[in-house]
Design a protein around this nucleic acid. Structure first.
Length: 543
RNA sequence: GCGCCCGUAGCUCAGCUGGAUAGAGUAUUGGUUUCCGAAGCCAAGGGUCACUGGUUCGACUCCAGUCGGGCGCGCCA
């Protein structure tokens, strides 16, 4: 890639100028386009250890660079306190178009992390109710993150963990039984933490219609879990989330002996102790703020034991990069799980696993917060969100915020002002290009052979420069677990395109000009499409 | 009380391992089409980056404290 080439060249310049034997310059896009195509602040950073004025360092660096000119570079200049600005030759900026057209839907992909096994766990909703907006955010983030990791060559495994062993399922069963018998919430025998949503009634009706016996708790449980699992899957499919590779059941950790094995391992490593009739793990040895109970005095393990056992399973299945996507309300468990894994002393690294935490989603409508969903009882569901504003807008919106920042989803904004909606803006750019290409009636081979030197407009240069950033954007988003950069990037590409569109016409008489411009358009459409696909958002040909 | 996260334009949010004049969208105002999609483009106004101190040649960014908000702090999951 061009950027790496330039960094090599700059590094050589640093060496030959005798400024440093080890420093590697960081190359970034200047905020102001007038400053050039690339900039580095390496002279500022080297000035201090050298005890020299930054501008002086920059001057000798510049001289070294000019002594061995780079074929892509047209100009090197010093600016401000000692920045080195680099300007590329025009041809260097447009060469990316040929790359895009050649690579097609694989443009932006890399094999930098080829073969790296990565497990991403997300959604992991218990089968006790419909998916809510928090799950929606998780599904959008998780699916996109998986896609991003795949662009880097990772072998990605999507996993959904669910609790089918705890008392929440018993609670669900009891709630369905009572509702089926006509008991209303808070009626006779209704448990304090019973599930109150309308869906409980629906499940009860379905169960009765199937001819089941309400008093058969096992039958009710199985039926209810099935209905809810199916419904969750349906919502996820409607949301465009790729199929999970594995649904991991908590109960299996008990039946296959992993829980017992984990307890034994922790005892053997000597970090457990008995107190008040319970078995504890000294998680404070590993940075937790208090020790945790493993086995209750009344018998049975706390949820945290299977959690640790589960992560041992991830490790033993060969996933040394693991990302758990969870709500920030679970952040307290991070230290615990990590501590448990450390206490086992089986060589699992300290920071394992990684977490991508997201905060909850507030839904606004008509200027006030929507909290009540009739169907779910308390929270807004994923299904309702999709119904209100459509899959594309929901996915784009939910991913386009930093995961840990609180997010207010304004239904009215996503709906009534759909023309100003960023997702439509990006999709519109794509559709507009498709329209131009249709009118242009040009073949792929003609585009591939376009004489790109016909492109001269500065807005065309700006657009091509943006397109060239795509691979780096994907790599950074995957590395930093930051899917939100992708929607921002796509918006910029769309803006650069619209701006160029208004500056120069595509369908001109001169064949050489027309072909080159259409090649630029086609490459832009390709990048937009590739990016939208990673977000799970459609790229319509017309709208 | 303790821990984690957050506080940037009226509103919703970006700001990469500290760097050049803090950016988008939206809202407001003004332009823009006999010609490829005006769901567009061009421009203007709008900021003590919560506050205070510190480190640094340089701080929205790092550190400490204060204020304000969210979430945790169970022998629930």
């Amino acid at each position: 890639m061009q950027k790496e080439q330039l960094i090599e060249w700059l590094t050589a310049g640093i060496r030959s100028a005798g400024l440093s034997e080890t420093a590697v310059p960081a190359l970034e896009r200047p905020k102001q386009a007038e400053h050039g195509d690339w900039a580095t602040n390496i002279a500022l950073q080297l000035a201090k250890p050298l005890g020299k004025n930054p501008r002086e360092v920059a001057a000798s660096f510049k001289a070294a660079l000019e002594a061995a000119p780079h074929p892509l570079v047209s100009e090197v200049s010093i600016a401000g306190p000692g920045f080195i600005n680099i300007r590329l030759k025009s041809a260097a900026k447009f060469s990316v178009l040929a790359d895009v057209l050649k690579a097609g839907e694989k443009f932006g992909y890399s094999d930098a992390r080829k073969g790296e096994k990565v497990l991403v766990e997300f959604v992991s909703a218990n089968p006790t109710g419909p998916l809510h907006t928090g799950h929606a955010r998780q599904a959008a983030l998780g699916d996109t993150l998986c896609n991003l990791l795949e662009t880097q060559g990772c072998a990605v495994h999507r996993e959904f963990y669910y609790n089918d062993a705890g008392n929440q399922i018993d609670n669900l069963t009891r709630s369905v039984q009572l509702r089926a018998k006509g008991v209303v919430p808070d009626g006779e025998g209704w448990p304090d933490d019973g599930y109150r949503g309308e869906y409980i009634v629906e499940i009860g009706k379905l169960f009765l219609a199937s001819g089941g016996d309400v008093n058969d708790a096992n039958a009710v449980r199985e039926f209810a879990v099935n209905v809810l699992r199916n419904e969750q899957d349906k919502d996820l499919t409607a949301f465009g989330v790729k199929k999970f590779d594995c649904y991991y059941l908590e109960s299996s950790l008990y039946t296959d002996g992993r829980v017992d094995k984990t307890v034994d391992g922790l005892k053997t490593s000597g970090h457990t102790f008995e107190q008040d009739g319970a078995l504890w793990l000294k998680t404070t040895d590993y940075g937790d703020d208090k020790d945790r109970v493993m086995r209750k005095a009344a018998g049975g393990y706390t949820y945290f034991v299977p959690d640790v056992a589960y992560h041992v399973s991830k490790w033993e299945r060969g996933f040394h990069t693991v990302v758990n996507i969870q709500g920030t309300d679970h952040h307290g468990t991070i230290a615990r799980v990590r501590a448990g894994l450390q206490a086992l002393e089986v060589g699992i690294p300290k920071g394992y696993p990684d977490y991508l935490l997201h905060s909850m989603v507030r839904v606004m409508r008509g200027g006030e917060e929507v909290k009540i969903s009739k169907r779910a009882g308390s929270y807004i569901t994923l299904g309702e969100l999709i119904e209100w504003v459509g899959k594309d807008a929901v996915r784009f919106f939910l991913v386009s915020r930093k995961a840990d920042s609180e997010f207010t989803f304004d239904i009215d904004l996503a709906l009534s002002q759909s023309e100003e909606n960023p997702v439509f803006y990006v999709q519109y750019a794509h559709a507009r290009i498709c329209s131009v290409l249709r009118d242009g009636g040009i073949s792929d081979t003609a585009l591939a052979n376009a004489d790109l030197s016909a492109l001269t407009h500065e807005k065309a240069e700006a657009l091509a420069t943006r397109l060239a950033d795509f691979p780096a954007v994907l790599a950074a988003a995957a590395r930093d677990l930051a899917p939100h950069v992708l929607p921002f990037y796509l918006r910029e590409v769309a803006a650069a395109f619209h701006s160029y569109y208004n500056a120069e016409r595509f369908l001109v008489d001169d064949v050489r000009d027309r072909t080159a411009r259409l090649a630029l358009a086609a490459a832009t459409a390709q990048v937009l499409k590739n990016g939208l696909q990673l977000l799970g958002v459609s790229a319509p040909d017309k709208m």
